[in-house]
Design a protein around this nucleic acid. Structure first.
Lengths: 211, 211, 211, 211
DNA sequence: TGCTAAGCGAGACGGTACGTCGCGTCTTCGG
DNA sequence: CCGAAGACGCGACGTACCGTCTCGCTTAGCA
């Protein structure tokens, strides 16, 4: 047995994989400029200097393409390894805030997909797997780290707790339409998330906003 | 007594107000069946046995119509008056849960509007005023009632806190796609919201539904 | 019984029949400028200030539209009544040449349809009925007029004979690509058609070209 | 012996000239089945078991390929040498009819090219040279042979006359859509062409097919 | 009672995005 | 270097939906 996969040795000209990234970048740019709804497949293709067929060969649907576009970003690969252990949950979160290049774009692009999710299970699972889960998983990892330190309340449900930041951020961007300024992020972290996890009240005396 | 408004005394056939409710019901049905994106003004009109002009005479936009459709429901008018004062925040929330006829429909319809909000300020404020604010306001009223009882932590930000339940519910329905079962609502209330507001950990001794 | 037709009393906004002519004119203009192949439905619609749907509502196919476009012209309605009886076949043809506003456009548009005819029977019969037959019928009527005068040979097949001018004109425009100059038309008439019909040789002594 | 041309001695694998004929045959088959418009280069290549590049290496355009396809047939090489001198024009034409393997296919393929001719001069001249001229030239040669015999009218224009059969055949196949049955060919020859050339009426005593 | 203006169902209108398909070129691989 | 396969840029196709406009009718309220 030569190869472990049964792929039948692709014939013909292979996909130009460099076009993938260029098209996804064009998609991100269009979405950033015009929003999901007003983003056109033709415009994405034109911006990437590609034909529409080249786009549709890769993604059969605008939604699929957008998922790839917004999940293939640097900070999508944000893992617990890149968050230094500062010795406390509140410190770790502060470190996380400094790392994150404010991924508003991801959430705003998600806005356009939300209406499709209930009727497109594959799309929903892709969104979940690529966009939602990584963020929740990272928070959960921080909670587990804090748990090892003994910072957490005994009986708290980590799975539920880990969704709180994503929920609050999504709500602020998608529903109430306010920006993700750092005041909000600090407040979310130190007045909501940490007290909830540790059972200790927020340290209100401390000046808000590291940045 | 003349009319108090300067309306120039409408001539001609008056609008048939009974059509409003029928159209809104048709809109709700279509949205429930097909989702916001796939709902067509023509389909709503046809389902209501009306012409498109009859619909557009009342709402200039699909989004506006949908807002009316989903905000004109019984539990949209839920106010603090209808929540009995049970003597504790956790009890009040339990009463609220019993009152609420699970307004999933409202949130799912909201899903379709989310993508338009960043580009349609009027729509955004309508959504905010009609859908979001009433729910947040109700929660805030419950918090104020609890505050008078002395249940709350001194320095908690009521405005931020009051958005937590809406945020968690929106996230569950719109983003993670899970249903609003009562286990979740109990957990949200008693493991997240109440501890956050009062600073006291969840009453873990009490059975929390199935889990 | 009220009306003789069973038409069910058309509902809704009636077609704006004035758009028909404007679209057909736009189609003729586009075809004249760019040729049949390069004429686009979108371009025709845009030139007519119409939407594509308005065009497709009337003609489901480019070919159908073009047939209408080229058959709804003034000289399409050319009948024997408008050809004065000059007393001889050759004179009648001369009168015909003066009447005809050189319908090259019709034939050139036909060029684009020719490739579809063998596979589209409806199209073929439309082309035949609207474009070909009227021209052949006119010539045949002139032949019959000449026959009453006793100009014709006894045994000539009028049906076949009547197709000769159309065939020669089509061949010149579509196949050999030469223009329909008046020398050719005179020669066709006086060296080919009249001798063929009457059995008398062309009158070569006479100077060619009335015009 | 070196090559007589200055071609720089082609390197590498020589072109497989057997593919030419296979591709042209595939092209003819496709055109016969689907018509020129609906014939696809990809389909021709696939039918020939070839890649599109193999096709385009030989002909830069669908039209060019089709011209080759339809001009590389046996009776395309029909010359005056193969028409026995029967002693009369009408006899020579009868001999020609017996030789010709009814080249309907050529004319039907031409149908698809007609629409391109006005905008593609090279294509037009190729069509003219390869398809039209040989047929006209053959007829003209027969006319010249008849002229030597003294059969023709003195002042007839041979160039114009020689196009009549092609024009009538093209018209019948491309425009009126009727088949090239032998009745028509006989009538064309003996009631139209010969009388026109010789000035003598058709020999009506002889039975003309069915009619 | 009849007039009049606006409401009504129906559907045509100008736009615009969609996803598909064909053309003619280009790029990879194996022979 | 050829040949098979197929990706590429381009752009037309025909469909669907949006929000507006227009048709002929119905229906209230005023005269």
């Amino acid at each position: 047995m030569t190869t472990q996969t049964m792929e039948p040795r692709r014939l013909g000209r292979p996909r130009d994989t460099s076009r993938d990234a260029e098209i996804l970048q064009a998609a991100r740019d269009e979405i950033a400029e015009r929003g999901y709804e007003r983003t056109t497949m033709a415009a994405v293709a034109a911006r990437a200097g590609a034909g529409k067929a080249t786009v549709y060969r890769r993604w059969t649907t605008k939604a699929e393409m957008v998922i790839d576009a917004i999940s293939c970003t640097a900070d999508a690969a944000l893992t617990i390894d890149r968050i230094p252990d500062t010795g406390s949950l509140v410190g770790d979160l502060r470190a996380l805030r400094e790392l994150k290049h404010h991924d508003e774009g991801v959430w705003l692009a998600l806005a356009g997909l939300v209406s499709e999710l209930p009727h497109a299970p594959e799309l929903a699972s892709a969104v979940h797997e690529r966009l939602v889960r990584p963020r929740v998983r990272l928070v959960r990892a921080l909670l587990e780290r804090a748990s090892l330190r003994g910072e957490l309340l005994r009986d708290v449900d980590l799975d539920l707790l880990a969704t709180v930041p994503s929920a609050m951020i999504a709500y602020r961007l998608l529903v109430s339409g306010e920006p993700l300024d750092s005041d909000f992020l600090v407040q979310l972290s130190e007045e909501v998330f940490v007290p909830l996890a540790t059972g200790r009240p927020a340290r209100v005396a401390e000046p808000l906003g590291v940045l």
